[in-house]
Design a protein around this nucleic acid. Structure first.
Length: 205
DNA sequence: ATAGCGATGAGCT
DNA sequence: GCTCATCGCTATA
């Protein structure tokens, strides 16, 4: 399958992109180890007018500056002092849109992922939850700003679409009314999802 | 210079 | 359901 290209990442509807990414394959080749998985859960964060976005109202700091780059680079940051969360930057330069990868379904390099996660058997918690995804794939802050069409981290397109569930984003209660936006997407009937809520609804296409 | 806190996860009740 | 580990980012001074 082909790598997603610059034209893909530079599209301006970050919510549509977050939904589309469900079913594509995230691949890393880090420390000489190849690992990959089908993306099963994403969240969209829209620059400027989204209170949950780190770049809300154009906030520009050492941490957020890469968000303003042309779509197609990685935004990795440390959360709660422990977890490295991996995001995809999208849209044109100066539009700080981002997509958080919250879960994947492992497809290759399972042994490497188990070792990185200190686990002995494959189960949903291996790669469910944004912190776990990064740890399993070997992604860390050293990949901040990395090109997503390079050799270390890239995404392969899909041939078929999966049923997708739409929901509210997790862990952003501080964002007021924007916490209610249905900008979280996950694959239906897939165990590799971080958290399910009652009000979740299928996406109509 | 520094207080406050977060796009989480694991473990225990 | 509840606690807490753990530390860099951010705002404020």
């Amino acid at each position: 399958m082909k790598k997603l290209n610059a034209a893909f990442y530079q599209q301006d509807d970050v919510v549509a992109l977050a939904r589309y990414l469900i079913g594509t394959e995230l691949v890393t080749e880090i420390d000489g180890l190849k690992t990959s998985g089908i993306i099963t859960e994403t969240e969209a964060y829209r620059g400027y007018d989204d209170k949950a976005c780190h770049a809300h109202l154009g906030r520009f700091t050492e941490r957020t500056k890469v968000m303003y780059e042309t779509g197609g680079v990685a935004y990795v940051y440390l959360c709660y002092g422990i977890h490295h969360l991996f995001n995809i930057i999208t849209n044109k330069k100066h539009n700080a849109d981002a997509i958080l990868i919250r879960a994947i379904q492992p497809t290759s390099g399972l042994d490497h992922m188990l070792k990185r996660r200190n686990k002995s058997k494959v189960e949903a918690s291996l790669t469910s939850g944004p912190g776990n995804v990064s740890k399993a794939l070997g992604i860390s802050k050293s990949h901040y700003g990395k090109d997503l069409q390079g050799s270390q981290i890239y995404i392969l397109d899909k041939t078929k679409t999966l049923p997708v569930i739409q929901s509210v984003r997790i862990g952003i209660d501080y964002a007021g009314e924007d916490a209610q936006l249905p900008w979280r997407f996950y694959a239906a009937d897939n165990p590799y999802v971080s958290k399910k809520l009652k009000a979740d609804t299928p996406c109509q296409e």
